[in-house]
Computed example of a mutant assay.
Amino acid sequence: MQNKELKVLEIPKWGRYLRGEWLENFAGHLTKEKQKEIYLNSFLWHLCSYEKTECLEKEVAIKAFERQKKNQCTIFYEFTNEAFLVQNAINLKVKDLPYDRWDLNFSDIYVMDSENNWTFIITHETGLGPYFIQKS
């Protein structure tokens, strides 16, 4: 991350835990069967692409993410257990996210606030996302 104001701590092996928290907080309204139907076990962002939750998309999602009051948040990926805790995240922007569209392990990125009230998702798919979900 290039933003010097951010305090970024690597939290190795937290990816699985954070994906579980994400599922519970943002897809908990779906039964296990419904989750399987939309292949949520393959890609968490299918929650948005299959329209199983209210979310913002594309530029509107980016603007919503960048407007959020961010004190502390986590960043994790779809296929790796590497994760980051970002403190002093008030100025965290999309351009600061550690994202690599060409490496499948690091190509689907999830940002979630420490209270699990919102999440921002960038997918590896051109034309799908980014997505922003705000819990009501």
Rank of each mutant, 00 (worst) to 15 (best):
E37Y: 03
E51A: 10
A61Q: 05
G28R: 01
E57N: 06
D96S: 06
L40K: 03
Y77I: 00
I90S: 14
A83H: 02
K32I: 12
K52L: 08
W22S: 03
K93R: 15
F84Y: 15
E115C: 11
K58F: 09
I90D: 14
Q87A: 08
H124V: 05
F106L: 11
V111I: 15
G28N: 03
N105K: 15
Q87Y: 05
K7I: 14
W45Y: 15
K7C: 05
L56D: 05
Y39Q: 13
K58I: 03
Y17K: 10
R16M: 07
F26R: 01
K63A: 13
F79T: 08
G28Q: 02
A64V: 05
L47Q: 06
L47N: 05
I75N: 00
I38K: 00
Y17V: 03
I90C: 12
T126H: 10
S107A: 15
F120Q: 01
L40F: 13
N71P: 00
Y99F: 14
Q68N: 07
T31V: 07
M112Q: 07
D100S: 11
N116Q: 13
T74I: 10
K52P: 01
G127T: 08
N81Q: 10
E59K: 13
K32Y: 03
M112I: 12
F120D: 00
V86E: 02
Q35T: 02
F106K: 10
G28C: 01
F79N: 14
E57T: 14
I121L: 12
A64E: 09
G20Y: 07
D96I: 04
W14F: 14
K32D: 03
L56V: 06
L104R: 14
V86C: 07
K70S: 07
T123V: 07
F43C: 08
C55Q: 08
D96T: 05
G15T: 05
E37N: 06
A61T: 07
G20Q: 11
Y50Q: 14
E54S: 12
A61R: 04
E115L: 15
H29N: 08
F106E: 00
D96K: 04
M112R: 02
I122G: 00
K95H: 03
N81A: 11
L44K: 04
D113K: 05
V8L: 02
T53H: 01
F65A: 02
